[in-house]
Design a protein around this nucleic acid. Structure first.
Lengths: 193, 193
DNA sequence: GAAGTGATTGCAGCTTGTGCAATCACTGTA
DNA sequence: TACAGTGATTGCACAAGCTGCAATCACTTC
């Protein structure tokens, strides 16, 4: 018998998601979360830098996956296309099987401004990481940032839809739909054409 | 003689900007800021909901201005173009004359993750407000979000450059340049063409 | 002259988050 | 078997952010 039950971080995340769902983020204390996971407040802060971070366990893995896919992509592929393809692969590999949890989590985040800000921060970090990778592939920094930002924007729109109750299409499908819409929107703009 | 010195919020903002610049955001306490402004911590929290908010006095005004410009725009103008034109007008009307302060403020924000998250939150709020206005003009919600997000992304890229030391071009100029780059990036993408 | 307004303040209290030292089952080594 | 080392967990003390409530007091209004 191990000294401690395993998967402390996962247990904390599950407890947090339940409590935020039941009572809301603000009126849930870290002590409560830890208690439901059979741990203490101090231990919570050993695993997560702050209360919000408990809902973002996966983001570093997602970021690594996306950047890796871009790096593996042929250099001839234009920047935006490279990023979109990477996001599609990751959508299939990491998101699709987690749709149920992702939807609950998304509802919790949507209900609280602090959590929304943290999610925006994670998206920005993803954008910067993508831009850095594009830069490493030879893109100039400004183009890299715009291409990364455009792709993440499409991802955001697709994710929004993907977590709507009643929506059954895959994230990959919604993503390429969003990218197509973007093409229309930008090409209709007199300044760009 | 008035009972209290006027412009408490502005004084607090000036004091905060100085202190954050001198010592950093984290190692500056709200009590310190209030003291330098000749007030107390309690009064600080009467004016601002939290410590970060003191650097974002103008954002509500900016948001109102942008939305107003879009509303005043001819309905025949396509969505992205309408938003970009509005951002250009506001760039001239609210930003250009504040370049010096904006640059100091931007440096402070860039140095602290919490402040960056708050700025992302403000940009997201702006995006949502723009999308709502586009929707009111007849856009479907998804197109509205993508058009708003694209414009704000360009604004972000332009603002980034505008606050770089040595950069002398106007924000309006940098903004239309960013929009043009976006056009190139998106039109080079096989998926959208 | 009396009553009302509103920006400011003090204070008590809760929560978040950190530093530091201690615990204690498990592991590897002599 | 003995014994030192590792590492996840914990308690405690404490700084700082933030809130609710009641009080102050110059200025305004009737």
């Amino acid at each position: 018998m191990p000294r401690w039950k395993p998967d402390a971080a996962e247990r904390l995340q599950a407890a947090a998601l339940e409590l935020f769902d039941e009572q809301g983020f603000e009126s849930t204390t870290v002590a409560e979360i830890a208690q439901r996971a059979g741990l203490t407040q101090r231990t919570f802060f050993n695993h997560f830098t702050d209360k919000r971070e408990v809902l973002f366990i996966l983001s570093s893995e997602i970021q690594r996956a996306v950047v890796g896919e871009i790096a593996a992509c042929d250099d001839a592929v234009p920047p935006l296309d490279a990023v979109v393809r990477a996001l599609e692969v990751v959508a299939d590999g990491l998101f699709e099987e987690r749709r149920a949890v992702a939807t609950r989590r998304h509802a919790v985040i949507a209900a609280n401004p602090e959590l929304q800000e943290r999610e925006l921060g994670k998206n920005a970090a993803l954008t910067d990481a993508i831009a850095a990778e594009l830069h490493a592939r030879g893109c100039d920094p400004d183009t890299a940032f715009l291409a990364a930002g455009t792709a993440v924007l499409a991802q955001q729109a697709a994710f929004q839809r993907w977590t709507r109750p009643g929506e059954t299409r895959t994230l990959r499908h919604l993503l390429s739909e969003a990218v197509r819409s973007l093409g229309t929107i930008v090409s209709e703009d007199p300044v760009t054409s």
